[in-house]
Write a protein that binds this DNA or RNA. Structure first.
Length: 116
DNA sequence: ATTCTGACAGCAA
DNA sequence: TTTGCTGCCAGAA
């Protein structure tokens, strides 16, 4: 029997990557939302920690579409330059101001609702 | 094996 | 109101 039914079988890190990759272009989500989708709503830190290892992944992880609850680009410093993340977001149509996505509430993408 | 950290989130003062 | 502390889970040293 194929055990690879869904991301639930994968490791926590892989799950984060899977969900992150599922984020549509032009959309954005928060660490907490992803954490809740994974089952542990309070493990938002793990999401960030997992994305920290996304650099070790051969695939591209749109980690720039994942920001904190306030829409703040808390992880921009992990993109090499502090402006890379903002540039990527603006390139997708987001309005970033002072390291914060002003359209966060408008373009918020909740995996719980979209992927339920 | 134990301890600390970490791209968050929620609650308390 | 803002600021700070704790809790959460998993990986790395």
């Amino acid at each position: 029997m194929a055990r690879q039914k869904s991301i639930e079988n994968r490791d926590f890190f892989s799950r984060v990557y899977e969900v992150t990759k599922l984020i549509p272009y032009g959309r954005i989500t928060s660490y907490g939302a992803v954490a809740r989708y994974l089952g542990s709503g309070r493990s938002a830190r793990l999401v960030g920690w997992a994305l920290n290892s996304c650099h070790s992944r051969p695939e591209f992880i749109p980690a720039h579409r994942v920001v904190n609850r306030k829409g703040l680009l808390t992880g921009k410093r992990h993109f090499g330059n502090s402006t890379t993340m903002q540039q990527l977001l603006e390139n997708e149509g987001f309005s970033v101001e002072d390291d914060q996505v002003t359209d966060f509430d408008e373009k918020f993408w909740d995996p719980l609702k979209e992927l339920k």
